[in-house]
Every structure is written in C-alpha cells, then in structure tokens.
Simulated assay, not measured.
Amino acid sequence: MSTDSLMRATASLYGLALGDALGSQFFVPANRTHLTAHTPPPGPWQWTDDTEMACSVYRVLADHGSVDQDALAAGFAAHHDFDRGYGPATGRMLRLVREGGDWRALAGGLFDGKGSWGNGAAMRVAPLGAWFAGDLDEAVRQAELSATVTHAHPEAIAGAVAVAVATAAATQPDLSPGRFLDHVLDHTPLSMVRDGIAEARALLTIGDPLLAGRTLGNGRNVSAHDTVPFTLWAAARHLDAFEAAFWATASAGGDVDTTCAIVGGILGARVGLDRLPATWSREAEPLPEWAGAPRHPSRS
C-alpha cells in the first residue's frame, strides 16, 4: 500500500460520504427551501447505503491492496444495514450472502439472469478510482471486479468503470473539463453509459444543471446510464469547486444522495481532505470505525 493511494482514497471516501449525507437531506420536504437557496439544512446529516458500501470498498483496498471479490462480498453482507436505503434486489441478495449464499450465482441471477444495471456499483467506486489514480487501465480492471460482486449487467459495470476512471483522472493537475471527460470516454466500454458521457461532453458549454439533468438523466430511474453521465457533467463543470459542484448536482433532483455521492467522491480525490468544506463535514455523520479511515481533521 502506498501512502499516496491511501490519502487519495481517504479524501475520496470523505467527499463521497459528505455528498451522500447532505444530498440525502433533500428528500425531506421541509429542507427543499434550503436547496433552492443553496444553504445546508441543520445537521446532523446521516449517510446512506452509498457510503456504507463505499466503506467496504475502501476497507478491502486497505487490507488487500486490490479488490478481493470474496472479501468485498463478505464485507457488503456483514455491514448491510437495511435502514440505510438499499434497493430491494441488493438488500435481498446481501441477506442471502450473509446466510451462506454464493454471491456469484446471486448477482448473476438477478433480473432473469441479466444482472442489475442499477447505479449501485457506480455510487461506491470513487475511492477505488482514487486508489489506482496512477494507472487508469488498472482502475478499469479493479472497477470491473468491484462491480460484478453485486451488479453483473454490462451497463452497471460500465458505470462503475466510468466513475473510477473519472476519479483517477480528476487527480491530474491542470485538467480541463473536456480532457477530463475524454479520459473517461477513452476507457469506458461501449454502452449506453458511454453514449451518455459523450452527450455530456457535448453539453459542457451549457451551465444549467436542470437542463443537463433532463437531457442526461438525474438518477430518477436508478440505472447506471440514467445516473453516471450527469454526475460526470457536474464534476467536469466544477472540477475545483466542491461546493458549487454539490449544488449543481443536487439542484437537478432525482436520486440526489447518489448523484451527490458520486460527484463528492470524484472531487474529494481532486481537492483533498483539507479542502472539503469543514463546516459541512462537521455536520455529516462520522464514518464507521470498521472502515478504518483516519479521523477527519474537522473533528480533531
């Protein structure tokens, strides 16, 4: 394990958890005026399944240096908290794994043997992209391994690959929005996800997140191809501005906790732990101790 890999992955995990926790607050009707005003609602903010699963990805990388699929499946199952908002298919699968089921058969058997094309593999993968930031091809391979533990459909795998590569690419200095998305397009397999990212590339001159969300999808259908292209558009438009990226993402509505988790994980890796908004970080629920992540400096 390199210190740089761990530091990047840690910053990404905290950025993901912050986006997830704050984004989840806007499912509460009373908080929607805060969204319109771009002001955070009162804390504390609880994170969801996005962060819980990302913590398992992070822990497996810290323990093994790469994706051990059996360890990752065991981690997902052991730490599965039904109340964190898991989708029904994933929740049932993890319960069966906990009871001794084979994750390979269970993941591959979902949805009449096609596998899930949901956004769950993409929502948790950013710390992995940060870990393998120095090798985009390896980030692709490891993202595929991480995705197939629960999401065997090619679209879900493509979504995970795209977010992992985006996170890895985001750590590069002097990165233009167009070049950022070009890196992702160069490494994402042919898919509806990739088609959406190409459309996001063409929409970079448009600054309206509502229009971008309507065009690209905002996660409302919780599929990878309805989620990932818009999040990469939002990250590309605000590569060095975490707060602006968050508000642009959240204002498009849809699956707000997940879209904000993805964008937060990408930009957390880019800006680093010390440049995440400290006042926001203090309101977010702390990461679980079992994840093994260093304590956030805002809580020191």
Rank of each mutant, 00 (worst) to 15 (best):
A158K: 08
S5M: 05
V263M: 10
T36M: 06
V140M: 08
V140Q: 13
W45G: 01
H38F: 04
F242Q: 12
E285M: 09
H183D: 12
S56A: 15
L216S: 03
A11I: 00
F242N: 11
R295Y: 00
L203Y: 05
L110W: 02
S116M: 10
R95Y: 03
L61K: 12
G100S: 13
N31E: 06
L232E: 06
A158F: 08
A284M: 14
T39V: 14
G43H: 03
W47K: 08
R179C: 06
V57P: 09
D83A: 15
S223K: 07
V184H: 06
G19V: 00
G268P: 12
L13R: 13
M7I: 12
G213T: 04
G196T: 12
V161R: 09
E99I: 04
R8A: 15
T215P: 00
A71P: 02
A54N: 14
H80S: 06
L287Q: 10
A198G: 08
L106I: 12
A244C: 05
A278V: 05
T205G: 09
T39L: 08
I197L: 03
P288Y: 03
D240Q: 11
T51C: 02
G254I: 02
Y86A: 11
D50V: 06
S300P: 01
G113L: 04
P29V: 13
W233T: 13
T3G: 03
G253I: 02
G264A: 09
A245I: 01
T3Y: 01
V97I: 15
N221A: 12
A241P: 00
A252D: 03
R275C: 05
P40E: 03
A168E: 10
G253M: 02
A30Y: 07
S116P: 11
A235L: 04
P286Q: 05
D137E: 15
L16W: 08
R32F: 05
E155K: 04
